[in-house]
Design a protein around this nucleic acid. Structure first.
Length: 334
DNA sequence: CATATTTGACCTGT
DNA sequence: ACAGGTCAAATATG
């Protein structure tokens, strides 16, 4: 809309600038030492960048739901494109927490999973609360909510479902942001790390600079799902105005999701890939554009209460990764 | 014993 | 009425 005009403009510039930089990088990678993965990754990012820029131009709002990541931008074995429409508005006006909660921002990411382990380790602890057979889907959809839902009032939830097309791929749809503090201690120092059975969290993620969990980079897709109202239960959050909901899509190779080097969480790792250098400014913009930012901001106490899901965005700006990092790591793509 | 998962019932939006 | 999402009692796990 026009609510963030200035911001949009800035975003636009950032996007274009990013595209420019990425293209330059790509140029350098095109050569004898070229790494196919690197190039693909860059292309992927470039496309995403322009998609976002175009989305702003076309929709006046970076909601750009229509822009989907180009499939096959990256090798099939590694990355997949996403694009989950999603259409639900869970308004639970009963029992406890679901008073008048509208929909929350959602974003989907697809993860390739080998040996059916995973539901995706994303640095947070989840508790499964349901499973449903979905019409037309070959595999049931599992529902998870943040373990700290009741204790800290964290409303983050996620849905995990195997892909019909490729069972080795798991689609994870996140909804709502974490407002909880996922203490590293709670994660029992990487014990669960090994047993991904319950898709536990990796402490390091939080320890390190609050790397954005919701940092979508590789071709994410944003869809404006309309107004949504995030309610922060009982918490200290004064009020959480409404914002637009969105779906973000990420694609990345499962191998990355698992234990990879640095002992860092996969997503964290991804974030590094996504916004290696000066793209962070934009990275944030993405969120900002959507509502996420407003959401985050709308929760002042977040600073004290939930460093996890909130600060991460801001931390982006401070993080300064080595641009080359992504390329080194790109090897993991194959 | 505490906590997590399973699973059928229930609720809500379409 | 149907499909998706959530609840909550029963059950499993450590």
């Amino acid at each position: 809309m026009e609510k963030i005009r200035g911001w949009e403009q800035e975003t636009l510039v950032n996007e274009l600038h990013q595209g420019y930089e990425l293209t330059k990088q790509l140029k350098h990678h095109i050569g004898p030492l070229t790494s196919l993965e690197s190039c693909e990754f860059l292309v992927h990012k470039i496309i995403s960048t322009y998609d976002r820029a175009l989305s702003i131009l076309n929709f006046g709002d970076s909601s750009a739901g229509e822009f989907q990541q180009v499939a096959g931008t990256l090798e099939p074995p590694q990355l997949l494109t996403v694009g989950s429409p999603m259409s639900e508005a869970s308004d639970q006006c009963h029992k406890d927490a679901y008073k008048k909660r509208k929909t929350s921002p959602r974003w989907t990411e697809q993860v390739r999973v080998y040996s059916g382990k995973g539901t995706g380790d994303d640095g947070y602890t989840w508790r499964k609360y349901g499973q449903k057979d979905i019409l037309g889907a070959n595999f049931p959809r599992a529902y998870y909510r943040c373990t700290h839902r009741h204790v800290q009032g964290c409303l983050a939830t996620k849905q995990v479902q195997k892909s019909d097309a490729d069972p080795s791929i798991v689609e994870i749809t996140y909804r709502g942001r974490h407002t909880c503090i996922q203490s590293p201690a709670l994660a029992s120092s990487g014990k669960e790390f090994a047993k991904q059975k319950k898709d536990q969290c990796q402490p390091h993620l939080l320890e390190e600079n609050q790397i954005p969990l919701f940092n979508f980079g590789t071709g994410f897709k944003t869809e404006d799902m309309g107004i949504m109202e995030e309610t922060f239960p009982s918490f200290s959050f004064p009020s959480s105005p409404s914002k637009s909901q969105n779906v973000e899509t990420i694609s990345f190779p499962e191998p990355l999701k698992e234990k990879n080097f640095l002992g860092s969480d996969s997503l964290e790792f991804l974030s590094l890939l996504e916004f290696p250098n000066d793209n962070f400014g934009f990275g944030g913009d993405l969120q900002l554009s959507e509502s996420d930012l407003s959401e985050i901001i709308s929760a002042p106490t977040s600073v004290t209460n939930s460093p996890t899901g909130n600060l991460d965005f801001f931390s982006l700006d401070q993080v300064d990764f080595d641009p080359n990092f992504q390329f080194d790591t790109s090897e993991f793509f194959s």
